[in-house]
Nucleic acid binder design. Structure first.
Length: 297
RNA sequence: GGAGAGGUAGCGAAGUGGCUAAACGCGGCUGACUGUAAAUCAGCUCCCUACGGGUUCGGCAGUUCGAAUCUGCCCCUCUCCA
């Protein structure tokens, strides 16, 4: 099986830097596993690394998408898998670095997405209760995992049923839930307190680097807060600011808060959805040793 | 010194006799997750040996079957006048 190294962890732990040092050490190339850095023009707010910071290491899936367009797991899966093969063909180690859990999992595991299901149809005329009732008949099993208030998921499940004539739970049941690569998943962590400090510092830095200006530029190009790209943390918090409802300081605080909440959700995901090995950022040497050990197997 | 306002859970803030261990917001924590995932959604947050029990609403003492809510005294904070 093809070896793939994954470096993940909550926002602001320092995945990018570590990824680069590992890539240098093992002659690897990096595939970004990040749903926001894919967008061109979303640089500061997404914490995108600069050309210089890449230190000559090749990075993929950064800046490949126009912010006016939507992106999706399915697309990521396809592109990342293609790149894994390509990098491997060059005799280099593919390293996925990023914090978008679902994206990474979809690449590693035998997730299958149906070609026909691309966009959600409109179900505006149906209430959550009504959708729930329909699903109860056609795919009751999926409701174990979908709360009635989670409209997005309800609609998605119903849409999948309509397009494929199969329930989403049946599609999942047909999968093996096994990794299709020889992947080592390394998760970086630190104490909550330290992480929150890092987040605060990072957000302050973003403002110093001109985040406000970046958002302004994007808006001038015609992008709106309805676009998916701007629903990301670091961007959507500016909506009220540009509408004159809150101050810049309040925007900053909101970004910090939402980043903290996001980090928490990431932890939950990595802990429960991944078979991963954790390393404290004070112990990166150990992580490197572990990676080499796996690499030499 | 005089006049007024107020002290409620980590913070902000409701609540003016029983339905209140106390709305709501913030902060914190936990969880779900297969085409929006930096998204969407659910739960917990006074203490405990927890389908039950124990202590709360500045303090103390009362009224009452029953008080965060009524009375008295005390402590503290804020605003205004001297």
């Amino acid at each position: 099986m093809q070896k793939v190294l994954v470096i993940t962890g909550p926002t602001a732990v320092g995945k990018s830097d570590f990824g680069i040092s590992v890539a240098k050490e093992l002659d690897g190339e990096i595939i970004s596993g990040d749903s926001v850095q894919i967008y061109r023009g979303l640089d500061i707010g997404s914490g995108k690394i600069t050309k210089e910071e890449m230190q000559g290491i090749r990075h993929y899936l950064i800046d490949t998408k126009d912010p006016f367009e939507d992106y999706s797991v399915a697309e990521f899966q396809k592109e990342a898998r293609f790149l894994i093969d390509k990098i491997a063909a060059d005799n280099r180690l593919p390293i996925i670095v990023g914090g978008t859990g679902l994206y990474i999992k979809a690449v590693l595991y035998d997730y299958e997405f149906n070609e026909e299901v691309i966009k959600d149809e409109e179900y505006d005329d149906l209430s959550n209760e009504e959708i729930y009732e329909i699903l109860k008949k056609v795919d009751p099993k999926c409701l174990d995992k979908i709360h009635i208030n989670n409209r997005k998921r309800l609609i998605r499940a119903l849409n999948i049923y309509h397009k494929t004539n199969k329930g989403i739970s049946a599609i999942k049941d047909a999968q093996k839930h096994e990794m299709i690569y020889d992947a080592l998943i390394i998760s970086l962590t630190s104490s909550r307190e330290e992480l929150y400090q890092r987040i605060d510092k990072r957000v302050d830095m973003m403002f110093e680097k001109g985040l406000e200006k970046e958002v302004e530029t994007l808006l001038k190009k015609g992008l709106t807060f309805e676009h998916k790209a701007l629903s990301a943390i670091g961007y959507r918090q500016f909506k009220d600011y540009f509408e004159g409802k809150i101050t810049l300081d309040e925007v900053k605080e909101l970004i910090k808060r939402d980043s903290r909440r996001f980090a928490k959700r990431q932890y939950t995901w990595f802990r429960h959805q991944f078979k991963t090995e954790w390393f404290d950022i004070g112990n990166l040497n150990e992580a490197l040793i572990r990676i080499k050990e796996w690499y030499d197997e």
